[in-house]
C-alpha cells in the first residue's frame, strides 16, 4: 500500500513546490539595474542640472535611462539659438518671457536678472562641474533616451525642428505610466 501511495503523493505535491519565486535581487552583481525614468518638468537651472547629473550617472551605472520632457522642462530642450518659438501671439510671448534653451536657464532663487546663473556658472567652472549643456551631450552619447511630451509641444507650438538634435519621438502620459508600471524607477524633477 505505502509503496503505491508514495509516488502518487509526490506527483500531487510537485506543482505546489514547482513555482519557486524567480525574484532577482536588484543589487545582485550580474543583475541589470532597474530602468530609470526621469520626468523633467521644471525649467530652472538647478533642476535641469539635477536631471542631467542623475541621467548621466544612471547611464554610467548601466541603467537604461529615459527622460520625459514636459511643461517647462521641454522648453529647456529647445535649441539654444531659438529665440521666439510658437505659432500664435500667445505662444510667441511665452517664449519671449522665458527664453528657451538649456544654456538660458534661470535660478529659482537668487536669479537677480541673470547675475545668479552667471555666478553659478563661474563657480561650476572653478570647481570643474560639468555644465548642463556638457552633461546633455554626454547623456546622448551614453544612450539616454529623451522623450518630448506631445501635448506640451502642441501647447507651446513647438516643432520637431525647434528641438535639440537627438530627441526621441514625442509621447504622451500613457507611455510614462506604462514605463512606471513595468518597473522603471520614477523621478519627478
Amino acid at each position: 500500500m505505502t509503496a503505491v501511495a508514495e509516488p502518487a503523493m509526490s506527483i500531487v505535491d510537485e506543482p505546489v513546490v514547482a513555482p519557486a519565486p524567480a525574484a532577482v535581487p536588484f543589487h545582485e552583481h550580474e543583475a541589470k539595474p532597474r530602468d530609470i525614468l526621469i520626468i523633467c518638468y521644471s525649467g530652472e537651472l538647478e533642476k535641469t542640472w539635477a536631471t542631467m547629473i542623475l541621467a548621466t550617472t544612471g547611464a554610467a551605472m548601466g541603467a537604461k535611462v529615459r527622460v520625459f520632457l514636459t511643461f517647462w522642462g521641454l522648453q529647456t530642450f529647445v535649441k539654444d539659438q531659438k529665440r521666439i518659438t510658437g505659432d500664435n501671439a500667445m505662444q510667441k510671448m511665452m517664449s519671449f518671457m522665458q527664453r528657451p534653451g538649456i544654456s538660458h536657464r534661470k535660478l529659482s532663487k537668487m536669479n537677480f536678472l541673470g547675475m545668479g546663473p552667471w555666478m553659478m556658472g563661474k563657480l561650476a567652472k572653478q570647481y570643474k562641474v560639468a555644465s548642463p549643456r556638457e552633461l546633455l551631450d554626454l547623456a546622448k552619447e551614453m544612450g539616454v533616451e529623451f522623450m518630448p511630451c506631445q501635448m506640451t509641444m502642441d501647447m507651446f507650438g513647438l516643432k520637431p525642428e525647434d528641438m535639440i538634435e537627438g530627441m526621441g519621438e514625442p509621447v504622451g502620459a500613457a507611455t510614462v505610466i506604462a514605463l512606471m508600471t513595468e518597473g522603471s524607477a520614477p523621478l519627478f524633477i
Binding site: I53, T56, T57, A59, A60, M61, G62, Y127, K128, V129, A130, L135, L138, E141, M142
Partner: peptide, 13 residues
C-alpha cells in the same frame, strides 16, 4: 579636479 558625476561618467566610458 573633476566634480561629480564626471569621475564616474569618464570611468564608465
Amino acid at each position: 579636479g573633476l566634480s561629480c558625476p564626471m569621475p564616474i561618467v569618464k570611468t564608465a566610458q
